[in-house]
């Protein structure tokens, strides 16, 4: 129900120092998911699940970060989104009611909606879960990347790779792996030679977002039981006082007020 950080799951490591912006990954994604060609300038949309964000010579491949504890999945009232064992956060259209809470809640503004359709779907990268990852193949985007700028593998192994690169070339890399801690950790990791804040990466909090609401929701059983008992008790006490008052005033006989056995007031 509540997928905890499984460091054993798969992940993607995108190294911005190696990306040449050829868009092979973008096109591979389009092809495998049968999406219409990208428009330029590009951005994430219901039909573009990954794109190259070009900022002054830095090519940044954007996509769903596949959070370890995803806000989108936590807010969905019908559990249409969920984090699988593989690491992919996937979507089941047949459950979705279209409330778009996932769009609102995702800290990275990833899920997109098919606004122009009569029966719209939520769309985002699903890590090629059905077509490739669940069959033991790597996602289309990482498979095609000619420079190896975006890699697929076990999350903990990719973390080792990333740490090693920073260690080997401290003069190039900023000493930060984006996605280790952001939003409680993500399954898509980034390495960069330019500080992440300058590249439009959100400085997300490190506690998982779902905890914010869960800290409140988990009190519900207490509220219900204490509240219910409290109200019943309040009613009982006040009601009894009023009866006693009425008996004392002679409006009611004791028997009428408290039944045959006549408990002592």
């Amino acid at each position: 129900m509540h997928p905890q950080s499984n460091s054993e799951g798969y992940a993607i490591l995108t190294d911005l120092t190696k990306c040449i912006g050829c868009e092979a990954c973008v096109q591979a994604c389009k092809t495998i998911n049968e999406l219409p060609p990208a428009e330029h300038p590009s951005k994430l949309s219901a039909t573009t699940w990954t794109y190259i964000d070009r900022r002054e010579g830095v090519n940044i491949r954007r996509q769903c970060l596949h959070c370890l504890d995803p806000a989108c999945a936590s807010v969905c009232p019908v559990a249409a989104l969920h984090k699988t064992e593989t690491g992919a956060v996937i979507y089941d259209f047949n459950r979705c009611i279209g409330c778009r809470y996932c769009l609102l809640a995702c800290p990275f503004e990833i899920p997109k909606y098919e606004w122009d359709k009569a029966l719209p779907r939520v769309q985002k990268c699903i890590l090629c879960y059905e077509k490739r990852v669940s069959k033991g193949e790597e996602p289309a985007c990482t498979a095609i990347c000619p420079t190896g700028a975006t890699l697929f593998g076990k999350r903990n192994e990719l973390l080792d790779v990333a740490r090693q690169r920073i260690k080997d070339h401290p003069e190039i890399y900023v000493n930060h792996i984006y996605g280790v801690a952001e939003a409680g950790g993500t399954s898509v990791l980034y390495l960069s030679d330019v500080p992440f804040e300058q590249l439009g990466f959100k400085t997300a909090q490190t506690t998982p977002y779902p905890q914010l609401t869960w800290n409140i929701l988990r009190h519900i059983p207490t509220v219900v039981s204490v509240g219910g008992v409290g109200m019943l008790g309040t009613w009982w006490i006040i009601h009894r006082r009023m009866l006693i008052e009425k008996v004392n005033n002679g409006e009611l006989s004791e028997e009428e007020a408290f039944g045959k056995r006549g408990e002592t007031p």
């Binding site: 129900m1 936590s74 969905c76 019908v78 559990a79 809470y101 779902p210 929701l217």
Partner: peptide
């Protein structure tokens, strides 16, 4: 759907 498809972690649910 929320009646039969549960997600107790969701406020909306």
């Amino acid at each position: 759907h929320p009646i039969i498809m549960w997600n107790p972690h969701s406020v909306m649910f």
